[in-house]
Nucleic acid binder design. Structure first.
Length: 455
RNA sequence: GCCGGCGUAGCUCAGCUUGGUUAGAGCAGCGGUCUUUUAAACCGAUGGUCCAGGGUUCGAAUCCCUGCGCCGGCACCA
């Protein structure tokens, strides 16, 4: 780094701005390569990006320039640039951002290359790049300094591009079906809609404690009360829990609510969402995750939780015990996509009871490879029942269960105005992206995962 | 929070089991040769708080303890 500071000073002394501007690329590296086609050479193009590798060869310098999509080779020739400019090009460092102009041609080895006729240093890099062959492997640096990871590891860029494509595809399908994309508060007085410990904060001028949301549910349902019949939000939620390869304290949730639908309809929606997101990620439905094969082609198997627990444990159970037995003995064994349906009412304070057996609710989770990807139910619309459920949760809370659902009087007031019958859905986007990009850790699909303080 | 593994040059890694000259290699950077290379090649010089602190020892990168960070598992949890 000291060498580069000195180089920077030399450049400035020579009247060259190492942080210049005004260079306008005419092509991306991809477009410039495509431009050549079968021709011998093209007219002049201008491309810009970061120099990744430099190969000095006497009177010729080869370098690879990386832009947002790809890399392209540059060739600078002393005979073309002249002694002085050639020396200045050869003096560029890997990591520098430069713009170059010249025709595209093919080298003797067949590499499509820009012949540098003019170039401009746009940004001098003061820090050396990671190893050109092995890339950056140290996971701590990869997460803490994601920018370096993105420069050095093209697979990482591909994962995050896939993430964006998946989210775009999810929005596309929902938009197409008439769902409107809304934004609801992150700062909430009562963090509801899920079971988790919230982050607490404080608004100074209102002198009021607030929580970061743990779910989107209760505000989206208020919008159905208001008359929007199909809404969704893809938003960050925050849960004050431990970290793991599958848990980051802030993560992205998709929730959608659809009036006049039941959980059967939502199952179909989930199947469609999985299919479009796999396509967007460029994954076949017959695929694998971390070496284990999995078939994502719908229709997904549908099984009642009580039946599964009976099958795997031989036990008839209900209530929280049923849910506990399911999570311990059944869920890890469900490898191919399975809709587990009809949860006990005790663990589902916002879901509609089954008419034929009110000990269970019309709820499902989608389990793939032992992990939960979606949670949905036919929503509870009866305000009297909803109040009773909240009261039962409040009792658990009073007994010390910090994750029991808090009472929310404003939500109850909304439901008292009349919530249309509806089906709701939540999908953990990060886990879906992990599955579809075959990444082992949630930190590999979140650009800047939470880390302890750097010492 | 508990248990285990790991932490050596800017990066990728040896060395640690069994303590012993001045801690090594490749890449990057620096100087040089080289006009079609692509992990370019070759020659030369440089580069280290061996995570931090303490201990054992004549002597610690190496053994022990504590702390910090990262990873994994468990707990907790979408």
């Amino acid at each position: 780094m000291r060498d580069r500071r000195e180089k920077l000073d030399r450049l400035r002394a020579a009247g060259i701005d190492p942080y210049s501007r005004g260079f306008l690329p005419t092509h991306s590296t991809e477009a410039a390569k495509a431009l050549l086609g079968d021709a011998e050479r093209t007219d002049s193009v201008s491309i810009a990006g970061r120099l990744m590798v430099k190969r000095l060869q006497g009177g010729v310098v080869f370098a690879d320039l990386q832009d947002g999509h790809a890399r392209m080779q540059l060739m600078a020739n002393r005979n073309i640039l002249g002694e002085e400019e050639f020396a200045r090009f050869a003096d560029l460092d890997t990591g520098d951002i430069a713009g170059v102009t010249g025709p595209v041609f093919r080298t003797r080895r067949g590499e499509i290359t820009v012949e540098v006729h003019k170039f401009q240093l746009l940004t001098k890099s003061l820090r050396p790049l990671p190893e050109k062959w092995h890339g950056l492997k140290d996971v701590e640096i990869r997460y803490r300094q994601r920018y370096v990871d993105l420069i050095a590891n093209p697979q990482v860029r591909a994962v995050f591009r896939a993430r964006t494509k998946i989210i775009t595809a999810l929005r596309g399908l929902l938009d197409e079906r008439g769902f409107i994309d809304v934004e609801t508060p992150v700062l909430q007085e009562i963090p509801g809609g899920g079971h988790a410990r919230p982050f607490q904060t404080h608004h100074n001028s209102l002198d009021r404690d607030l929580f970061l949301r743990i779910a989107l549910e209760l505000h989206l349902k208020r919008l159905l009360v208001g008359g929007f019949e199909r809404v969704y939000e893809i938003g960050r939620v925050f849960r004050n829990e431990g970290l793991s390869p599958r848990h980051n304290p802030e993560f992205t949730l998709l929730e959608s609510y659809q009036a006049y639908a039941g959980y059967e309809d939502v199952m179909q929606l989930v199947e469609d969402l999985v299919v479009v997101s796999a396509m967007a990620a460029g994954r076949p439905l017959e695929t694998s995750y971390q070496g284990e094969s999995v078939n994502l082609a719908p229709p997904f198997r549908r099984e009642k939780m009580a039946d599964l627990v009976l099958e795997h444990t031989g036990r008839h159970a209900t209530g929280e015990e049923l849910n506990d037995l399911f999570e311990e003995h059944v869920q890890p064994r469900l490898r191919h996509p399975t809709f587990v349906i009809d949860y006990p009412v005790e663990v589902s304070p916002l879901a509609r009871p089954r008419e034929d057996d009110p000990r269970f609710v019309e709820r499902f989770e989608l389990i793939i490879l032992g992990r939960e990807y979606a949670n949905a139910f036919t929503e509870l619309t009866d305000p009297i029942d909803q109040r009773a459920r909240f009261e039962s949760q409040a009792a658990k809370r009073a007994a010390g269960n910090v994750e029991a659902h808090p009472m929310d009087e404003d939500f109850l007031r909304a439901v008292e105005y009349g919530l249309p019958p509806c089906g709701g859905l939540g999908i953990g986007i990060d886990r879906l992206v992990m599955l579809l990009t075959d990444q082992p850790s949630i930190r590999d699909v979140i650009l800047f995962p939470l880390m302890k303080a750097e010492s």
